[in-house]
Computed example of a mutant assay.
Amino acid sequence: MSLSHIRPARHTDEAALGALDRDTWSPLHAVQPRPKPPYDPFFDANHRPEDFLVAEDIAEDGEGTITGYIRLIPPTPLACNRHVRQIQGLAVAVNARGGGIARALLRASFDEARRQGAVRMTLRVLGHNTPARTLYESEGFAVEGVLPGEFWLEGRYVDDVMMGRSLTP
């Protein structure tokens, strides 16, 4: 039996997060090619631990296993846009899918965004990623724009769908 919880990422999570990111790569959500060795660091100047929340399963022996992450950042450095947070990455381990981890990460990101003073949340999702779009819609996101055929992926054009939601009651 294990207990799952959401917490801020730590520098020591880098190897586990990098492995999770590579293991969950899919043309369903990725616009970059599949990562190949040597792998870039997971954390860098634009991807800092404080930008991530992680889902962690804690076993009875106290050992933790990261099962998912979400990246939450301001969409621009502009002061006039500081009331918005954007999700720029959400991943759940293949063997942990279907257990509500993505939903828990989303809800935790709403709380974290509010804590940071945000009143609005946005994201971008590929048009063919029906499971993600369904999840986002069930959590209050609505389509706010579509860039038709924005990406050429695996031999076809794929839409870039912009979604958003309010964080106020």
Score class of each variant (00 low, 15 high):
Ala108Met: 06
Val125Gln: 02
Thr134His: 14
Thr130Asp: 10
Ala45Lys: 13
Ala108Val: 03
Tyr136Val: 01
Ala142Gly: 11
Gln88His: 06
Ala113Gly: 11
Val146Trp: 06
Leu90Ser: 04
Gly62Ala: 05
Leu135Met: 07
Glu60His: 09
Leu153Trp: 15
Gly98Lys: 15
Gly155Met: 01
Ser109Ala: 13
Cys80Ile: 04
Arg115Cys: 01
Ala132Ile: 00
Leu153Ala: 04
Gly62Asp: 07
Gly155Arg: 07
His47Leu: 02
Phe43Pro: 13
Trp152Arg: 12
Phe151Ala: 01
Gly127Glu: 11
Ala91Thr: 03
Leu153Asn: 09
Arg133Asp: 04
Gly68Trp: 12
Gly155Thr: 03
Asn46Leu: 08
Gly149Trp: 12
Ala55Tyr: 06
His47Thr: 00
Pro49Cys: 00
Ala59Arg: 15
Thr67Pro: 14
Ala96Asp: 08
Asp57Pro: 01
Arg103Gln: 08
Glu150Cys: 10
Glu56Trp: 13
Leu53Cys: 12
Gly117Tyr: 01
Phe151Trp: 12
Leu106Trp: 06
Pro131Ala: 06
Gly127Ile: 03
Ile70Val: 13
Ala132Glu: 02
Asp61Trp: 14
Tyr69Gln: 05
Ser138Ala: 11
Glu139Gly: 11
Thr76Met: 06
Ile73Glu: 14
Ala55Trp: 07
Glu60Asp: 14
Val158Ala: 03
Pro77Cys: 10
Asn81Met: 06
Arg120Thr: 02
Asn95Tyr: 09
Leu135Thr: 08
Ala79Trp: 10
Val125Lys: 08
Thr76Gln: 11
Ala113Leu: 12
Gly100Cys: 01
Ile70Asp: 00
Leu78Arg: 13
Glu63Phe: 14
Ala113Pro: 15
Glu56Pro: 09
Ala104Arg: 11
Val94Asn: 09
Pro148Tyr: 01
Ile87Val: 11
Gln116Trp: 08
Ala59Lys: 15
Glu56Asn: 08
Leu147His: 15
